[in-house]
């Protein structure tokens, strides 16, 4: 049976500015080193594939991975093509076994991917819901936590947004943080998620942020997922 639907498609994963950037300005790292990433896969919803929001997110991941521990060469981000059914989503996730998966998804696709992750028994390190004004993360054991690191990474910019994080491994929820920037969140989010997964400073290199297009205000509601399958 074929159930037609808009589904996930690989983003165009060209490394743009990120592969050429110089190492960032350093500040004391707030990250807990996690396992070094050996293989990464990327899922991006078809409806945003190729858009500025997904391209900047992908660039952020690439930059984050490139800078991780100063050891990793830029990883090959494997394009993951999903088909037209939930079964296909599950089989794409199955195909990503042994990898760290980064995903940027529409609300609709996020529901299916979360269900797929449940079916394949994946670890979900971070599940974030995002828009220009607010970011909300749900994490499991990573109470260091992605939200706080992301908040720090945004603080230098302009505009307002709140960042909230629910960590299952922490007794009480931390109060939401209000930070002074939101506009270039996809790049910084990608960067922070990649750095969180591999350990290292979360500071976004100044040279990267000089790229004007990262400051484009994104008016899209999206979900990010980091998972180890």
């Amino acid at each position: 049976m074929s159930i037609s639907r808009r589904s996930l498609l690989n983003a165009s994963l060209a490394f743009t500015a990120s592969t050429a950037i110089s190492p960032g300005l350093s500040r004391a790292s707030t990250l807990v080193a996690r396992e070094i990433i050996s293989s990464t896969r990327l899922f991006v919803s078809q409806c945003i594939a190729g858009s500025t929001v997904s391209a900047t997110f992908v660039d952020g991941i690439a930059a984050g991975l490139y800078h991780s521990n100063g050891q990793l060469s830029p990883p090959a981000l494997t394009p993951v093509v999903s088909g037209s059914t939930f079964g296909q989503v599950v089989s794409d996730l199955e195909g990503a076994r042994g990898s760290t998966v980064f995903a940027l998804l529409s609300g609709e696709d996020a529901v299916l991917v979360n269900e797929g992750l449940r079916v394949v028994g994946a670890k979900v390190v971070s599940y974030g819901t995002h828009n220009a004004n607010a970011h909300r993360f749900v994490t499991g054991s990573f109470c260091a936590g992605v939200g706080g690191i992301f908040a720090s990474s945004l603080e230098a910019g302009v505009g307002n947004c709140t960042i909230d994080e629910i960590c299952l491994g922490r007794v009480s929820a931390a109060p939401p943080r209000l930070v002074q920037s939101g506009s270039e969140w996809p790049f910084r989010l990608g960067y922070v998620l990649a750095r969180s997964m591999s350990g290292g400073s979360s500071d976004v290199p100044a040279s990267v942020l000089q790229e004007g297009w990262y400051r484009f205000p994104f008016d899209t509601d999206l979900v990010s997922v980091v998972s180890k399958i």
Binding site: N114, R118, V124, Y127, G140, I166, L168, A173
Partner: peptide, 24 residues
């Protein structure tokens, strides 16, 4: 052993709710 999950990261997809209350 594999079919009893207590790993917090593997519990996240089970804790993901949509209703107007915190996951906690």
């Amino acid at each position: 052993a594999d079919n009893v999950i207590v790993d917090l990261d593997r519990l996240v997809p089970y804790a993901k709710i949509m209703i107007p209350e915190d996951e906690k």
